[in-house]
């Protein structure tokens, strides 16, 4: 089994292919591999409850762990209590930890 960390830095408000990136994460999970999503920069904006961005909710419904970079959240006045259910704040060190553990870390 392989492990993947998907880093989403733009979200579907800025990147038309962001939903496809999330869909790929779902397909990886469906084939039995481990996948997590780390939102960073404007990629955290779809994680605000009430956001109408595409892709993220389907990933959450698929049971994929979704994290949001704490500094990116703070910069955008996005509090943990504002996050859509299922998204957890996380430190940037998560990226280093997964990279060091040999996960395939893929930036979008």
């Amino acid at each position: 089994m392989k492990h993947y960390l998907f880093i989403e830095s733009e979200g579907s408000f800025a990147a038309a292919d962001a939903p496809q990136f999330f869909a790929l994460a779902r397909e990886i999970k469906q084939q039995g591999d481990t996948v997590e999503i780390f939102l960073v920069q404007n990629g955290v904006m779809p994680a605000r409850a009430g956001s109408k961005a595409d892709g993220l909710s389907a990933a959450l419904q698929a049971g994929i762990a979704v994290m949001a970079d704490e500094m990116s959240m703070r910069e955008r006045a996005l509090k943990a209590s504002d996050l859509v259910t299922g998204v957890k704040p996380a430190k940037i060190g998560t990226v280093v930890e997964r990279t060091a553990a040999g996960w395939n870390v893929i930036w979008h």
Binding site: S9, V40, Q41, N42, K91, I92, G93, V96, A100
Partner: peptide
């Protein structure tokens, strides 16, 4: 863009962690 800063944050964290 914001990417450069994020790369620096990741590299910094890796160095801080002793890699």
């Amino acid at each position: 863009s914001a990417r450069g800063t994020t790369v620096f944050r990741i590299v910094s964290e890796a160095v801080r962690s002793g890699f």
